[in-house]
Nucleic acid binder design. Structure first.
Length: 497
RNA sequence: GCCCCCAUCGUCUAGAGGCCUAGGACGCCACCCUUUCAAGGUGGAGAUCACCGGUUCGAAUCCGGUUGGGGGCACCA
């Protein structure tokens, strides 16, 4: 195999989509596995819908995932890389123009003076007759005089590429041989708008050829467009790259994953506390497998195992539960200091939202890591787990203070007795090992199940029924605050009674 | 409507003619561990391999058809 050059060509018309990220990942993996080059190209020719904010989101997201590109455009603070630039299509207009001129000169393309209204009407007519939409070719054989008349009329022409009849076939690396008759392509296609800007199907071919892309790895939604591209490669006299069409990522109803039915923006997953390791691992396994029973794999491990042979043909439903499981696997594998690092912005968000009073120090969080590491499906869950430690007071629901097997009076007694037992442990000895024996003894002496007593205490000091282990929780809280919260809980319970 | 693609537990998948009385994972259920929640361990339910027909001594695997699903058919990408 010659030099492997692959690319991801996002369009900055929206935030980084999960499907784009997956396609980028597969291209990256293919490049890394084969020692090839991974190119990033921005397809920004839809000026009306493109924005630099989206562009930034896409670049940041890819970067965050660890999908570094070998060649790509210059971005804030970073110079362009690669010898095939520029890598923004709006900066390559001269090339599309030149390619279009060549096609025009060779009569492979022709000016089309049809207006939007005329084309819409034509399409509507075909649709009403239950026929497939297709351009009639009305402007295909205009005489010079007719063209001059349109021009005189002030009409600006679009440029159409002639789709010649015939069968177009290619060997897709995941689907095998695919054959499509050119007559099913919808007629001659517009490659340049009336304003002179090029269209996707044209730019993608001109650029893939110019950038010497060897393998086009993209979503299955482009499978039936591929013959158009092949025809263009041929007309331009360029080598045709290999194609690999990946299965689509699906909504739960098995339609193409969409913003309407699923969470599609990578940024939202990042904001919720998914890790790059978990997301990459999950995305790689959506439509690909190692062929073995290995599942928890790093980006490098995946790259070393990656191949197109094990890419699935059928679409894959996005399963958030499985993603959360994998994410938890990766959170548990993080070094404690690394976890502290990753948790910092999520704790800051808790402060910003007013859910905790202050940002915990790194040291504080580090001592809590053993208590929370295996309890975080996503980093964003950290607030629920340890928020009670960094809040002046906790909201207490009197009902929760009474364990299921107890009544309010017992709970009141239990909390009072616990307050006394905990208070009896001096500040110097305030350790988990010192707290557990007296509280167990207390439960035994009163004939309570230890779990019930512990639950009442847990709710009193954390406000929740689910929390890290109780004695560690008390220690983390500190003697004074633990006692104060028990007092407050007793008060709340007494008031409710 | 036309064209193309696809089809194994609810979901992600293993499976390249005999190793399949179809394996793993998520989720679910039970039990163990246990102060709650997790994590971990053990076990379980869950797939007539969409259906029909062929090829073959033998088919989840090959072929044909049917059905179902999806995608594409723009002066969007």
């Amino acid at each position: 195999m010659t030099d492997v050059r692959v690319r991801i060509a996002p369009s900055p018309t929206g935030p980084l989509h999960i499907g784009t990220a997956r396609t980028a990942l597969f291209n990256y993996l293919y490049a890394r596995h084969h020692g090839g080059t991974f190119v990033l190209r921005l397809e920004d020719t839809d000026v009306a819908r493109s924005s630099t904010a989206y562009e930034q989101d896409i670049l940041d997201g890819l970067h965050w995932l660890g999908l570094t590109w070998d060649e790509g455009p210059g971005v804030a603070g970073e110079a362009a890389r690669g010898g095939y630039g520029p890598y923004r299509q709006m900066e390559r207009l001269d090339r599309y123009r030149a390619a279009a001129d060549r096609l025009l000169a060779e009569d492979r393309a022709y000016p089309c003076y049809c207006t939007k209204e005329e084309l819409d009407a034509e399409r509507a007519r075909l649709e009403a007759a239950r026929l497939p939409p297709r351009y009639s070719g009305r402007c295909a054989d205009l005489t010079p005089a007719e063209r001059a008349a349109f021009e005189a009329d002030g009409r600006r022409p679009a440029l159409r590429f002639r789709i010649e009849p015939g069968l177009v076939a290619f060997d897709d690396l995941v689907r095998g041989r695919v054959e499509i008759d050119a007559s099913a392509l919808g007629g001659d296609m517009v490659i340049l708008r009336a304003d002179g800007t090029p269209l996707y199907h044209f730019t993608v071919v001109v650029d893939d050829a110019a950038m010497r892309i060897s393998h086009v790895i993209r979503g299955e939604d482009h499978l039936s467009n591929t013959p158009k591209h092949i025809l263009l490669f041929r007309a331009l006299g360029e080598a045709i790259p290999a194609f690999a069409h990946l299965p689509l990522i699906l909504n739960p109803d098995r339609t193409k994953m969409s913003k309407r039915k699923s969470q599609t923006a990578i940024g939202d997953y990042i904001a919720q506390g998914f890790t790059r390791e978990g997301l990459v691992n999950y995305l790689a396994l959506l439509g690909w497998s190692t062929g073995t029973e290995e599942e928890v794999l790093s980006l490098d491990e995946i790259a070393s195992r990656f191949d197109l042979d094990h890419v699935q043909k059928g679409g894959a439903v996005f399963d958030r539960e499985r993603l959360e499981w994998l994410n938890g696997q990766w959170i548990r594998r993080l070094e404690p200091v690394e976890l502290v690092d990753r948790l910092r912005p999520f704790l800051a968000a808790e402060v910003a939202a007013g859910r905790i009073d202050r940002q915990p120090t790194d040291d504080e969080v580090l001592t809590l890591v053993p208590l929370i590491q295996e309890r975080l499906p996503v980093l964003g869950a950290v607030g629920e787990l340890i928020g009670f430690l960094f809040r002046e007071r906790v909201e207490l629901d009197p009902a929760l203070l009474v364990p299921k097997r107890w009544d309010a009076a017992t709970a009141l007694q239990g909390l009072a007795a616990a307050r006394e037992a905990i208070g009896a442990v001096g500040p110097v000895r305030f350790e988990a090992d010192e707290l557990e024996p007296p509280l167990r003894a207390l439960a035994e002496a009163r004939g309570w199940k230890a779990g019930d007593l512990f639950m009442a205490i847990r709710v009193a000091v954390t406000g929740r029924t689910a929390a890290p282990p109780l004695f560690d929780t008390l220690v983390a809280l500190g003697r004074d605050r633990a006692l104060a919260r028990l007092d407050a809980a007793i008060e709340v319970l007494a008031a409710a009674a």
